[in-house]
């Protein structure tokens, strides 16, 4: 069964982590936004976000996969598929 509704929890968690790592205000972070083009979050910060997600949620995203995560929704989906 495909999850069609994003859990509010995952989005809020990702928003909070993005804010902690990059100081991008939570209201600017919506699922369709791309890290680099829309949020000015560069690839090194994306690595830090992945580390924080790993530490907080236990979800490990290997580097090879990380390069393919370009939007906020990509992270949310990645978190949800590991639950």
């Amino acid at each position: 069964m495909t999850q069609t509704q994003t859990e509010p929890g995952a989005l809020e968690t990702v928003r909070r982590i993005i804010f902690t790592v990059t100081a991008v205000p939570t209201e600017q972070v919506s699922p369709e936004k791309r890290f680099l083009e829309d949020l000015d979050v560069d690839s090194l910060s994306v690595v830090e976000i992945a580390v924080a997600i790993q530490e907080e949620l236990g979800v490990l995203v290997p580097d090879e996969e990380l390069v393919q995560l370009t939007t906020v929704q990509d992270f949310i989906s990645r978190i949800e598929t590991s639950r």
Binding site: T22, A23, V24, L36, D40, V41, D42, S45
Partner: peptide
């Protein structure tokens, strides 16, 4: 993007 990111 990079320098704005660091400056945040």
């Amino acid at each position: 993007g990079t320098l704005v990111n660091l400056a945040r």
